[in-house]
């Protein structure tokens, strides 16, 4: 439930502009900045395949968690 998330400490994964992560770290927020770059060297076909694999992995992980 979203309301249960309110009041919890936030922990952030930052993808993109690095200064956003710097600001969060300065505030003492647990943050991990990702040196993100276009996946698959910018190859769109391989990117689409990677997305499918990642989404499939997430579904498997959440199904395992639900057992």
């Amino acid at each position: 439930m979203l309301k249960d998330f309110f009041g919890k400490k936030i922990k952030v994964i930052n993808l993109g502009i690095s200064s956003f992560a710097d600001d969060l770290i300065k505030q003492g927020v647990e943050t991990i900045h990702t040196e993100w770059r276009p996946p698959a060297g910018g190859n769109k076909k391989i990117q689409a395949l990677l997305t499918k694999v990642s989404n499939w992995q997430s579904k498997v992980t959440s199904a395992k968690g639900a057992r």
């Binding site: 919890k8 502009i17 956003f20 992560a21 991990i32 990642s54």
Partner: peptide, 30 residues
């Protein structure tokens, strides 16, 4: 630093927020 969201999640598995500012064409995937 990790270079993917998956790599970052492995380092901070209880992360509950992802802040995304990558170019628009890649943003929805992330």
């Amino acid at each position: 630093p990790p270079s993917t969201q998956e790599g970052a999640a492995a380092r901070l598995p209880d992360a509950n927020m992802v802040l995304i500012s990558v170019p628009g064409e890649y943003a929805a995937r992330e």
